[in-house]
Design a protein around this nucleic acid. Structure first.
Lengths: 186, 186
DNA sequence: GTATCCATGTAACCAGTTACATGATTGC
DNA sequence: GCAATCATGTAACTGGTTACATGGATAC
């Protein structure tokens, strides 16, 4: 079984929400879903092209004064069907690759002090992320963002996922530093 | 900046612990570090070849009666240096791509009941994983596995990471199911 | 007699990344 | 004057996956 192109579904899903250009999609990826999804232009444009060829989306050129023309893409019925089908498919357990855990696992010959330093950095990053999540949560709950109730709930759950993950990571950092300090003389 | 080949360092790290064949390495990947790292033969063999060419490892053919010959690889001084250098480098924040969160985020048109079903599956998977982690933890603590004290502590922290993550995920599932039940009529 | 393990490797393929090219406009 | 934003795209590349090929040994 060949690897599924998930970019396709991500773009389809974003266009299902609002029609837009490749550039617009990239903005959504960087802002709204940046905490769990990323895309880059080098992939977005060719995939949009392919999707148009497959009839999943349609292109409409929009002229703008003083600005470059935009290719506005919209999802078709066929595209909508394909998206819905994918959304109902079980979530694939993708193989994990954690550089952090690999490094820890292999750090027998690294001085314990250095490892602790590294973990402290990780913890500090997580703390910053946690604050960011709280901020996004606040913005979403403030009502500033115009969005239907159901989507709002769904979006909040993705933020909550981030929060839970970071909290767990911080707890792990604390516990790890503690056990490392106990063997610091080794 | 080109993407770094992490397989290289994973293999180097494993060989730094014990010399062995590609087949042996694959076994380590599937068992000891399977919960946070994966490799496949189609990548292991060519990378080992390349590493030998670069002088990071050496090959020795080992003949065995009644079994296929094995290529036993050992890390060289140069390889050890490169590994140590990498281990001290800050951990790269790799872009995350969570199919779970993407699907949730895009599920506006999916019936809430279906989403809840899906989350229950996720929760059940996490519960199973949690049990597995506890089992591995037990084995490591039992003293059955022959390993130096420092490595043992490091390995236990990777297991603990898994535990914390799964616990956080379970908590998220519960909270998510609860908020979805509140909007089930939408 | 059949499945699994041992053991190595190649070929085809695809997803995704980075760098480059182009050029106008707006804000500081 | 400079940086950032708007906007689209291509080319080169690499990392990693899957499928295929081979074949003996062992366990049930």
């Amino acid at each position: 079984m060949a690897k599924v192109n998930k970019t396709k579904y991500a773009l389809l899903g974003i266009l299902n929400h609002t029609s837009g250009s490749g550039y617009d999609i990239k903005k959504v990826c960087d802002s709204s879903i940046g905490h769990f999804w990323n895309e880059n232009f080098g992939h977005i444009y060719p995939v949009l092209q392919r999707m148009e060829d497959e009839g999943l989306i349609t292109k409409e050129v929009q002229q703008n004064e003083g600005r470059p023309a935009k290719n506005i893409f919209s999802i078709t019925e066929k595209g909508k069907e394909e998206l819905d089908k994918w959304l109902l498919l079980p979530i694939e357990r993708e193989p994990i690759r954690s550089e952090l855990l690999l490094k820890i696992f292999l750090s027998r010959d690294v001085p314990v002090k250095k490892i602790i330093e590294r973990i402290r950095e990780i913890k500090s990053d997580s703390e910053k992320d946690l604050i960011k999540y709280s901020e996004i949560d606040g913005i979403l709950r403030s009502g500033e963002v115009k969005v239907d109730k159901k989507s709002l709930v769904l979006w909040l759950t993705t933020i909550n996922y981030g929060k839970q993950s970071e909290e767990a990571k911080i707890k792990w950092c604390d516990e790890t530093i503690k056990s490392l300090e106990e063997i610091e003389d080794l």
